[in-house]
Computed example of a mutant assay.
Amino acid sequence: MDTIWSKESDAILKVGRSLKDVGVCNWALTKEETLMALDQLETEGIAILGGDVYEMQRENLQSNYDNWYCDRGENESKSAFVSRSIAKAREYVSNYKLNRDAEYYFAIVPKS
């Protein structure tokens, strides 16, 4: 697979399941994988622009249309944006209400 975001981001995110089959150039990660990836992306200084939620339905991942986003403030430094965007993503994923019967995955959109 070609580079999607950057070599650094792709190396972290490709632990997830490919979304190529649903026409999306990204990976979907479990909650635990997502939280670990956010730690690694923060260490690399990579901000998160947002993300999407996917559900496993009949052996296939499908978007459930839940998502979050984070824009950089007008006078916000890069490091402040990285910290704030990671914190927002971590909060969204950590607090996402999981239905016991559903299997959820998160696709992260890192800043390239």
Results as ranks from 00 to 15, higher is better:
77 S>K: 08
88 K>D: 09
60 N>M: 11
68 W>S: 02
80 A>G: 05
82 V>D: 02
90 R>Y: 11
78 K>T: 10
78 K>R: 13
95 N>A: 09
70 C>F: 09
94 S>T: 14
84 R>F: 04
84 R>Y: 07
64 N>P: 02
59 E>M: 10
73 G>N: 03
63 S>Q: 04
97 K>V: 14
82 V>K: 00
79 S>C: 09
60 N>W: 10
60 N>Q: 14
61 L>S: 02
85 S>R: 00
98 L>D: 09
68 W>F: 15
62 Q>W: 01
91 E>N: 12
93 V>I: 14
85 S>F: 00
96 Y>K: 03
73 G>M: 08
90 R>C: 07
66 D>F: 08
84 R>M: 06
75 N>C: 05
93 V>R: 00
69 Y>N: 08
86 I>W: 00
92 Y>W: 12
75 N>T: 11
99 N>D: 15
98 L>Y: 07
69 Y>T: 07
72 R>D: 00
60 N>H: 13
91 E>K: 09
78 K>V: 11
82 V>S: 03
67 N>T: 10
81 F>D: 00
70 C>E: 04
76 E>V: 07
101 D>R: 15
88 K>Y: 08
76 E>M: 10
88 K>T: 09
58 R>E: 14
89 A>K: 00
95 N>S: 14
96 Y>M: 05
58 R>W: 13
59 E>C: 10
60 N>P: 04
72 R>N: 03
77 S>F: 06
57 Q>T: 13
81 F>G: 00
101 D>N: 15
63 S>P: 00
82 V>G: 01
79 S>F: 12
65 Y>S: 07
61 L>I: 05
96 Y>R: 04
75 N>I: 06
88 K>W: 06
99 N>A: 15
87 A>P: 10
81 F>C: 03
95 N>K: 14
68 W>I: 05
86 I>C: 02
75 N>S: 10
87 A>N: 13
79 S>P: 02
97 K>G: 09
77 S>L: 07
99 N>T: 15
85 S>T: 00
74 E>P: 00
63 S>F: 02
87 A>Y: 04
91 E>D: 15
67 N>K: 13
63 S>V: 02
62 Q>D: 02
79 S>M: 14
88 K>P: 07
75 N>G: 03
85 S>L: 01
74 E>Y: 08
80 A>D: 12
